[in-house]
């Protein structure tokens, strides 16, 4: 009990410290989502704690992911006019991005000779975690692999996204929001919110549209691709 509570406090403390670090050195590889887990994992292996012991206390933080996602409704509500004005651009770009995510994940997995169940687990990784997991399970994928793949997707989006924005000179907040929400679900949204609220609200819409498109298209696209392979 005290030990698991200790891990909770420790995680919050490390998060706070890594946030300060990021404030002074805003480098992509110093994002708290990379630094804090690395420090926690190192501390766990030093102290010999298992993940279940850790998660007993720190897992309470996971329960706040859903309330935080729901809080995005406020940014959506506030920026409804911008969303309506750009509805067409958002719908087309997000759908194209979500379909590309499924196709490239499945095609690369097939090309690398990965097991079909791993391929099915990777295909829905662009959708938000709970949806990606349920799609994966319904297709014959392994939900735990999907959970890890979705997480890695979020980290890559978070770290590489700002570079893509710069290199491809994506200047409009709407397009930036599309980029982050389509590719990297909630982790992408947290990065999008660092730009401004419009980027964040477009990213949240993009995340939702991606989830719906993946839900509808993933089983079908994966079926077509595996019959071609």
């Amino acid at each position: 009990m005290i030990q698991s509570l200790g891990w909770l406090v420790f995680t919050v403390g490390i998060y706070w410290a890594s946030k300060q670090l990021y404030r002074f050195f805003p480098k992509v590889y110093l994002t708290p989502l990379l630094v804090a887990p690395v420090v926690v994992i190192l501390s766990m292996s030093i102290s010999g704690a298992t993940f279940d012991q850790y998660d007993e206390g720190a897992g309470w933080l996971t329960k706040l992911v859903e309330p935080a996602t729901i809080a995005l409704a406020i940014t959506l509500y506030r920026h409804m006019d911008i969303l309506k004005k750009n509805a067409w651009a958002i719908a087309v770009s997000v759908t194209a991005g979500a379909v590309l995510a499924i196709v490239t994940s499945a095609a690369l997995a097939i090309g690398f000779g990965l097991d079909p169940s791993v391929m099915e687990s990777l295909a829905p990784r662009s959708a938000t975690t709970p949806i990606a997991i349920s799609i994966s399970g319904s297709m014959g994928g392994v939900p735990t692999i999907t959970a890890v793949a979705t997480l890695i997707t979020g980290l890559i989006g978070l770290m590489a996204g700002p570079l893509i924005v710069k290199w491809c000179s994506i200047k409009s907040p709407v397009a930036r929001g599309i980029l982050f929400g389509t590719s990297a679900h909630s982790a992408g949204i947290s990065k999008a919110l660092e730009y401004d609220m419009v980027t964040g609200s477009v990213a949240s819409i993009a995340m939702m549209v991606t989830a719906f498109v993946t839900l509808l298209a993933a089983p079908w696209l994966v079926g077509v691709l595996s019959s071609l392979a």
Binding site: V92, S93, L114, I156, G157, I170, I178, T182
Partner: peptide
């Protein structure tokens, strides 16, 4: 696999969005 796919998605969604806006 995840890295290449994610980068491609970001480039496509971002550029398409920028063009359309």
């Amino acid at each position: 696999t995840i890295f290449c796919s994610t980068i491609l998605v970001m480039v496509l969604a971002g550029i398409l969005g920028e063009r359309m806006v």
